[in-house]
Simulated scan of single mutants.
Amino acid sequence: MHTMPDQNLSPAQVAQLTSAMLSVAAVDGIQPAEAALIGQFYESSRSADMPATATFLADPQAQRFDAAALAGSPAEFADTVVLMCLMTAYADGHLSPAEREHVQALATALGLDAARFEAHLAQVRDDLVGALSHLPDAGSVAAVVSELSAAD
């Protein structure tokens, strides 16, 4: 799933984004698929001078996230945060109402309006369906699409 343009994130942005993703996963308990996505993102994005993935993810500071710290972020980074947080929320198979509310609060703190949030939500949902569309069992894909639509 590739929902955003490539961008060079600073070490501070990687840490902020990883912490935002952790905050979303923690809403209803970090699930293995969420942890895997977060770990994969951090590992692939961190620079050599940043803490190892396991060290960063275990750091209580990384798990304390203040959305206000993201206020004034560039629009491209704000979009990335919201998209990655939505992907994190969906990583365990569904977007819970509490996760959606949390990501909406992050979007608001980042200055994204409701229409932009909904566009990002639709984009992530479409990417998830697209990732499944190659499966030979069309009935299963239809069931997933129905669940994604019903959950929102």
Rank of each mutant, 00 (worst) to 15 (best):
I30G: 12
P32K: 04
A33Q: 13
E34S: 07
A35P: 10
A35S: 15
A36C: 11
L37W: 02
G39N: 02
G39P: 01
G39W: 09
G39A: 03
G39Y: 12
Q40M: 10
Q40L: 04
Y42H: 02
E43W: 08
E43P: 06
S45E: 12
S47K: 07
A48L: 15
D49F: 12
M50S: 11
P51V: 01
P51R: 00
A52I: 05
T53I: 02
A54T: 09
A54Q: 12
T55R: 06
T55C: 02
T55S: 06
T55D: 08
L57I: 00
D59K: 10
D59L: 01
Q61N: 14
F65E: 02
F65M: 01
F65Y: 07
D66A: 14
A68I: 03
A68S: 14
A68W: 02
L70G: 07
L70T: 00
A71E: 13
S73H: 02
S73W: 00
S73D: 05
A75I: 11
E76A: 13
E76V: 13
E76I: 10
E76N: 06
F77Y: 10
A78F: 02
A78P: 04
V81E: 02
V81R: 04
V82R: 10
C85H: 09
L86R: 06
L86P: 11
L86H: 12
M87L: 13
A91L: 06
A91I: 01
D92L: 11
G93T: 07
H94K: 10
S96N: 06
P97E: 09
P97C: 08
E99M: 04
E99V: 07
E99T: 08
R100D: 15
R100V: 07
R100C: 11
E101C: 03
H102P: 05
Q104R: 13
A105K: 11
A107C: 11
